[in-house]
Amino acid sequence: MEAVRFRVHRFRPEDGHRGSFREYQVPKKKGMTVLDGLIYIKENLDPTLSVRYSCRMAICGSCGMRVNGMEVLACNTQIVELEKKVITVEPMKNYPLIKDIVVDMSEFFVKQKNLKTWLIRKDVVEQENPTRQYAQTEEELEKILQFTYCIQCGLCYSACPVVSNLPQFLGPQALMKLYRYLADNRDEGEDRLAAVDKFEGVWRCHFAGSCSTVCPKGVDPALAIQLLRRAALK
């Protein structure tokens, strides 16, 4: 059976160095994904390898990593599609590393939480015990639909060159999520724009567009940021 060479980033915090790469030969099968390869390594070659995954069908967003230098979901990337003999697997950038290819995404979620990216209604009691539907027309839904597909995998945050240089930058995902609620006609949250109208907010985007390129769900965070800027300038 034909084999493919996996070059996997290994890091143990107790070793105190920056990490290194270890190579594994993995038998290649039809339809095999990068995640399948990593699971094969963990089950058959090296049980010390740490990988974060869950659904294996590009829904949970847990297995985000860099494969051959590109941010991808490992479960959504077939080995044959890569057309390479060597598959280099690295952790996502712009996150503190926990172990091997597993990163700490706390800051990513904190930034999003600070922007209150959920539906806010003035009548909280009614929201908790709704008596009717919060209906939307098709046109109203169309404005936000693509942004609701975000699975919070964090690939856009890893690909963002501004986050690399300015870690305080809120990042594409949080800003896109904020726009999703700002543009939602059911939302009554106040001061949403004030939360991003600061130095590390919406204005720091350089419109490199790498966030939109790597999004596995086809969301366009770069567009959301531009729309957010337009809303902030009104």
Binding site: V162, N165, L166, P167, Q168, F199, R204
Partner: peptide, 11 residues
């Protein structure tokens, strides 16, 4: 101002 903030990594 923006270039320097990004170069230094903070404002």
């Amino acid at each position: 101002r923006i270039i320097l903030a990004e170069l230094i990594g903070k404002r």
